[in-house]
Design a protein around this nucleic acid. Structure first.
Lengths: 123, 123
DNA sequence: ATAGATGCAAAGGGTTTGCACTTGA
DNA sequence: TCAAGTGCAAACCCTTTGCATCTAT
């Protein structure tokens, strides 16, 4: 991520305007509105360097290709709509999980993924 | 899943003896100890029909190919060892998660995945 | 000018499918 | 017997990589 290019500006802008985690194909589609001929390889390479630069964070859900969101948003969970398949960030979730692992197992972290209907699809 | 074959017996046995979720490659490797020349396509097809028959349940973890476990074990979470990458079933976990989704969002279910060190790798 | 970035196409990994051969009932 | 099941190889999908071309500095 050394030079500033139209492609990279467009890809960053797509993430900023989306406000939710996006997959490479979603980025490609939205990015082509800004840069005609944008290639999928450029999307993947740019995402990789933005993750490396900690400007993006990977969001991985079970059984699906990785999405990415703008980094630095603090602790939150992710919500996937079962109808439109879009993923949203859910802030303000609290809760505790009491873990009783088998003897000898050490739990270092956990991931929580929520599923349901988003506002648009529920309407 | 209409005929009984050496391959299918071997694959079911591999799952029963493993006692933890297995991926197709793990099944292939273990299955070849019982049936020489076992093919990966047969593993995939047999897993698919065992899932269809509800004898197996898919276990999907973020960013990884699906694993499968013997069905009918009630509610439990999954634990992935960061060192050996094996996945274990964790029963007896309790906890609550207070969810405060945005207005209009409906949460129907959630998934929890635990990460850490298994007993063997911690030793 | 020139090294970094891009786009295309080919290559990679995991999974699925087509097809001729094998085998269970 | 003969349709279901198997193994191989090719096809697929998503992602990464090689390479000639383009471009920001």
């Amino acid at each position: 991520m050394e030079r500033r290019t139209r492609q990279r500006d467009a890809i960053r802008r797509v993430f900023e305007e989306a406000g939710r985690p996006l997959g490479p194909t979603e980025v490609l589609d939205a990015g082509r509105a800004h840069v005609r001929g944008l290639g999928i390889a450029t999307v993947y390479r740019t995402i990789a360097s933005l993750v490396e630069a900690e400007w993006l964070t990977p969001v991985e859900l079970p059984g699906e290709p990785a999405r990415y969101e703008v980094a630095g948003q603090g602790h939150h969970h992710h919500f996937r709509c079962r109808t439109c398949a879009r993923v949203f960030e859910i802030h303000g979730c609290t809760g505790t999980i009491d873990l009783h692992p088998p003897a000898g197992f050490t739990i270092e972290r956990h991931e929580v993924v929520l599923y349901g209907l988003c506002d648009t699809c529920a309407a």
